[in-house]
Amino acid sequence: MARLRIKDGRAAVDDRAKGQEITLDAWRDGVRPEAGRFELSIPNTEDVEALAAVVSRFDAVILDFPTFQDGRAYSQARTLRERLAFKGEIRARGDVLCDQALFMIRCGFDALDIGDGDIEGFRRALNAYSAVYQPAGDDMTPIRMRRLPNSVAA
């Protein structure tokens, strides 16, 4: 199971030891982490905004793509990054294909569980676009800002 971490548009294999995963259900049942790196896995039906106080205690949040057609976790990731200003890792898990990788990164994911996916394919997909139209959960400058006179990002 390869994991990629993406920083500044570059993907690197994450070979750190996995953190301790706690599901949201377990958390609600009173399970509490003890020591080390903690990861909270959240189903894609949850309102993450209501979990602000919980996620802030974790190093990473794992969001789920049961199939690649089910795009609910994109909204969760943007809410975590843009509204809750969550600074930890947001990792995509499930049906994670290279063709959706850029959408994920743009929504604020910075780590992908890619299973036995082709790492080079992911790298290519992440660099397919040099320009994007809309602001989202990442720090790519939208085209409309690059068009402004005196834009340093042009």
Partner: peptide, 13 residues
């Protein structure tokens, strides 16, 4: 048109 083109959040509705 521009805003919706490859919108990262709303491409798998």
């Amino acid at each position: 048109r521009q805003w919706s083109s490859l919108h990262p959040e709303f491409s798998f509705l």
